[in-house]
Design a protein around this nucleic acid. Sequence first.
DNA 1: TATATAGTGTTTTTT
DNA 2: ACACTATATA
Length: 754
Amino acid sequence: MDFMEKLNMQQREAAEQTEGPLLILAGAGSGKTRVLTCRIAYMIQKCGVAPWNILAITFTNKAAGEMRDRVNAAVGRYAGQVWVSTFHSACCRILRQHIDRLGYDRSFTIYDTDDSRQVIKEAVRQLELDPKVYKERSILARISAAKNEMIDPDGMEADAKRWEEKKTAEIYALYQRRLKQNNALDFDDLLLKTVELFQSEPEVLLSYQERFRYIMIDEYQDTNTVQFALVRLLASRYRNLCVVGDDDQSIYKFRGANIRNILSFEKEFPGCRVIRLEQNYRSTENVLQAANEVISHNQGRKKKTLWTENEKGDPVRFRQFPTGYEEAEFVVGEIAELSRIRQKPYSDFAVLYRTNAQSRLFEEKCISADVPYQIVGGVNFYSRKEIKDILAYLKTIDNGSDDLAVTRILNVPKRGIGQTTIGRITQYAGEREMSVYAVLLEADEIPGIGRSLPKIRSFTSLISRFRAASADYLSVRQLMEMILKDTGYQEELEAEDTDEARARIENLEELISKASDYENTAEDPSLSDFLQQVSLVADIDNVEEGADRVLLMTLHAAKGLEFDSVYMTGMEENTFPSYMSVGTGSDEEIEEERRLCYVGMTRAQKHLTLTAAQMRMVRGETHFHTASRFVNEIPRKMLDIGRDTSDSRRFLAGSRDYAASPADSRDLFRAGSHDTAAAQTLRKKTPLQGMREFKVTKAEALDYAVGDRVRHIKFGSGVVTAIQDGARDYEVTVLFDKAGVKRMFASFAKLQKE
DNA sequence: TATATAGTGTTTTTT
DNA sequence: ACACTATATA
C-alpha cells in the first residue's frame, strides 16, 4: 500500500472513503487524479472490491487512458476489468448491447456535428421553411440544448410561445425521425438514449447497477443534466458515488454543463461527505496567487483559497505588442531561445488562446523559426473532406441505412451521377420510406433515371464487392486500401498533383495507420467498433505522449494539462473575454470566461506569461483592443510588465479607462469591426476616448521610396508607386509583379528594399 | 453535368 | 479571411 503514503491527509481521507456519496472539491493542481487512482487501487487491494464493479468516468479518452495506465501500475493485471471511459463511450458501449429495445439497430452509426447539420438542412427544406431564418447552426444548438435538458420534441412544442419556436420543435421532430431512419445517433442521443433505456427497461438498469457498485466521476463541474440523470440512475441502488470537481473550473456551460450539479450535490445526495483539496502541488506561489486574484472576482462560487508550499518563483509576466504578428514572434522567439540556449525541451511549453483562429500566426512563426509544434483541435482531423469520404464508404458498407453516408459518396469520386439524379433518388426513397441504398438496388424502378442506370449499377456492385470483402475477414486497413484503389479515389488525388492533394493523401495515410493501430490494440476489432471509436475521439486525444514539441491549443483544450511554461495569448478585451460574452453584458458569461482564464493560468507550473496585441486582424478586418480586464484584475505589484514599462503601463491604464465606460467600448468595437473606412477617418480627426492609447509605432523614416523595388512576405516583389504620410503611419501603395496593386501600412507590411 | 465566378454570411469554446 | 451558396456558362 505504499502508494497511499504519497498522499496528504485530505487526499488520503478521500481515497479511503469508499462507501457512500462523496464530493471531492479539488482545486487546480491538487492531485485529484492521483487520489482517484489510489482510491481505485485501495478499493481493489484493501477492501476486496471486484475490479469489474468499478466505473470511472473521465472527461476525455486521453484522461481515461492515463488513468487506466496508472491503475495498471498500481494494481496490476486486474485493472483491465475496471471500466474507465468517457460518458459518451460508456453509453455507446451500453447501447451497442441493448439499443434494439428502443427500436434502433445495434449497428447504429454516430453522427458528428456536420452530419447533424446536413440532416437539419434537409429537414428545413422539407418543411419549406426559410433557411435564412432557420439556420442549421442555431437550430442544432437549440436541439442540443433541449436534449441536454432531456426535453423531447413534444416538450419543446409545449414550451414554445413564438411561431419560430413551434417550427423549431417541428424541425426537431423531423430531425429525430430522420436519425432513426438512418439508424444514427448524435452525440447527445448517446446519453439521452441510455437514460431512456434505463428508464424503460428496469431489468437492464438493474444489471448495470449491480455491475457498477462503485462509481467515480471526474470533472463533475462539467456534467450536464442528462449526464447527471444517468449518474443518478446508476448510483441510486448502492449510492457509492464519488464525484470530483471544482466549480471554479466549470467552462462548458455552453454545451449544457450545469454548475448546479456541483453546487447542489449535497442536497441531491443527503449525508454525503465533502472533502476539500486545497493544497496545490503544481504551480509556484506567484502563479497561484495571481490566479487566485483573478478568480476571486467571481461572485457565485464556493469560497476557497488554494495554497502551496512551492517556491515563490518568477512573477507572472505581461507583455503587449502592436499586432498579433509581433506577439507571435515574441512567444515563438522566446521559446526557440530558451530551448536552444537553456536546453529546455519544447514539450515544456504551451501556447494557449481563446479561439482556434488565433493559432495561425503562431503556427507560421513556428514554421519559420523551426520550432516543432502540434496544434490541438482546429479543423478536426475527422471532419476533413477526404477522411469523411472514406469513412462514408466504411459506414455504407457497415450500415446501409445511413442515407447521409450513401448520398455523400454516390458521386465521389465523380462517376457521372449528378444532382438531378441524386434528387430523384432521394425523393423516391422519401416517398416510399425506403433507405437510399435500398432504392439504388432497384434503380430501374425510378422514373426518369434513364442514362444514369448503368452508373448506379456499377456503384452498387462496387459496394457489394466491398461488403463481401469485409465479411471475408479483411482488416479495416485492407478494406480502406481497397476502397482507395478500387474507387479511383487515390488515383484522382494523385493526378491532381497539387500541395493540397498531397496533404489529403497524407491524411488518408494517417487514417490507415490509425486503423492498423486500432486493429493491433482493440480487444475485438470490428468495422463498427472502429467507426464508433473514430466518432468519439476528442482533439486532445490525438496528442502524442512524449513527443518533444510545443503545444498550441485553445484554453478549453488545455483543461487537465500542465506545463512548465504557459503563454496565454490574446489577452485583450473582446478577444478574451470574447466579444460574445462582453456584448451580452451578462455577468454569468463573463464569469465563465473568468473561470476559463483561471483554468489557463493554473496550467502553469513555473512560468506564466500573458500577452496581448493592440491591433489584430479579425475576419479580415482590423480591430483595436485594450488589455483584458483579467490582466487588470491581477494587482500591478504581482505583475512583471516589462522593462519598457511606459508602453505596458499606458496600455493597462487605457484599458482601465475603458472598462469604466462600457458603452464606449462597444462603440469602438463597432467602429472597428463594421464600418472600417468611416471609422478610420473618424479616428484621424477625433480620436475616441481611449483611442490615443493605441499608438502604432510609426517608423521615423522609410528605407524605401517611390519607384524602389520592395519585397513583401506574402505578395512577393513589386514597385512602390505611392507613399502617403498618414497621421499614425505611412500608407504605402505597391504594384506587385504577381499580386497586383496593394495598399498597406508600412509598420505592418514589413517591406524589404530589394 | 461540371466548373467558374460572384455574392453571402460567419465562428467562442466541444463530446 | 474564409467557406459556402447560387448562378452563369461550357
